[in-house]
């Protein structure tokens, strides 16, 4: 009779394997201390400067060869549009959108441009199980449609609701989002099309570290003009696109409840267990099952042999 592993040894081994697998990922992944690429570029958006001319939207449409809009880019009636109770948002036809905010007590409206904020540690990237997303050393979060399976987890993961799905091509899945003009401009060190188009220099392009200096200088030298906060400096672990505002950020549509650390940190511990669960557990529980049913199996086998005799 061939030697079989005793039940006790098997369970011991299985448990030991589980413990080892749980302990091993303790070696911190690099992501835990990643503070962004040192020379990563970014854009500082100054809401006090934006006049809502929509030049950035027009330039983006042209640069990214997006479909023709419903209304011309010099039509300002779009600021009154409400879809499903919300102001305009990015979708498969537009990577950036400017919205108007009428802030109580302010004699003029404020405008806020939205696009991908190009997080230092992007949640879309973390959530994507086919690695369709890449954070480039230049600062852009880019997307590879060739590997995308269209699961749309990134759309759920993004704290800013930026990635959108191209529903018009569901069989050739494609996420549509701002890529910081990576292919055509950023890669060569040039600013994205929206920045170049902005007449008011409401968009300042530069190294992220330098933009923080500029932002702090503006706040320090004209403290009456600005909220003492750079949105995106720490939000979700820091973003490449950051904002200055003259009014509290929640009054101009910003989510001020996003965490100050990367979304990844909230799921890392859990995600670390997943490989262990997927590899060790099936073997362990299959073993339990086989051991538990071994007696029956032996009994059946014996009965079979008796019958044959």
């Amino acid at each position: 009779m061939k030697t079989t592993v005793s039940r006790r040894t098997f369970i011991k081994g299985g448990l030991a394997g589980t413990v080892v697998a749980t302990v091993l990922p303790e070696k911190k992944s690099q992501a835990a201390t990643f503070e962004g690429y040192p020379d990563g570029m970014g854009v500082l958006v100054d809401l006090t400067r934006c006049v809502g001319c929509r030049s950035c939207e027009a330039a983006c449409n042209e640069e990214q060869k997006l479909p023709q809009p419903d209304k011309p880019f010099d039509d300002f009636s779009v600021f009154d549009e409400i879809h499903h109770g919300q102001k305009r948002r990015t979708d498969e036809t537009r990577y950036t959108v400017v919205n108007r905010y009428d802030v109580p007590g302010l004699d003029h409206p404020l405008f806020r441009k939205i696009q991908c904020n190009h997080c230092q540690e992007p949640a879309c990237l973390t959530s994507c199980f086919v690695n369709a997303y890449t954070k480039t050393p230049e600062g852009a979060v880019i997307y590879n449609p060739n590997v995308c399976v269209g699961c749309r987890t990134c759309m759920i993961a993004c704290p800013f609701n930026i990635p959108t799905f191209k529903y018009s091509s569901a069989f050739n899945p494609r996420i549509m989002k701002c890529i910081f003009c990576y292919d055509t401009r950023l890669k060569e060190g040039r600013p994205p099309a929206c920045v170049e188009a902005c007449p008011q220099e409401a968009l300042t392009f530069g190294k992220r570290n330098k933009l923080l200096e500029i932002g702090r200088q503006r706040i320090r030298e004209t403290p009456d003009k600005y909220e003492d906060h750079i949105y995106g400096e720490h939000e979700v672990g820091g973003t490449a696109w950051m904002y200055l505002s003259s009014v509290p950020f929640d009054q101009v549509g910003f989510d001020t409840h996003v965490p100050k650390e990367p979304i990844l940190n909230y799921v890392k511990d859990f995600l670390g267990i997943v490989p262990m669960v997927l590899t060790v557990w099936p073997a362990l529980f299959a073993g339990f099952h086989l051991l538990a049913t071994r007696k029956d199996w032996l009994k059946n086998k014996n009965e079979d042999t008796h019958e044959e005799e």
């Binding site: 330039a59 809009p69 880019f73």
Partner: peptide, 13 residues
């Protein structure tokens, strides 16, 4: 660039 005037989106499209 602004897709306006003679480049404005037509009613049909």
């Amino acid at each position: 660039m602004f897709q306006t005037g003679q480049h404005a989106p037509s009613e049909t499209t």
